[in-house]
Amino acid sequence: MARILVTVGMGPWPFDRLIGAVAPLCSDHEVFAQTGTSSLRPPCPHESFIPADELGKRMDEADVIITHAGNTVRLVQRSGRVPIAVARTSALGEMGNDHQVAYLRQEERSGPVVAVWDVRDLPREVARHGERQARLLEERPLPPAATPEHIVEVMTSLSARLCGGRP
């Protein structure tokens, strides 16, 4: 039994395809789902939205994190884990465009992520996640994040240019 966190992000778009696919996992694992504006409710503990600190705590405690292909993908990767990600698609009304599809395709080629394109594959991916995670973490290092000093330098320079010298 694994502790699984499912999150669909804090945006206004529903993601019923992912939330609906969580049900088969609930009988075999300890699952918590953050469902956003999705209309489906999984047969496991769930909340529509949760505060950022609670989400971070739940991420830390989870063995497996299943997420939409939003910025949570990088958050999970920075925590030293490999997310299982599902992209929202515009054709299914899950988003206004397909930038999550493009992002996940790119990340799947080179990043530490497990991309799931058919949500019926989720139980199989969860079952073999430990092995895949270990291999992906070894083979695919993340690009470094910007340092706080670099961010301050860029923003100081930019604000000086745009605000006429005011810091």
Partner: peptide, 17 residues
Amino acid sequence: VPAVWLETLNIVDSPGI
């Protein structure tokens, strides 16, 4: 007022509207 647009990390090619 000067305004700065920050492109999010998960935009890899064509951005939204």
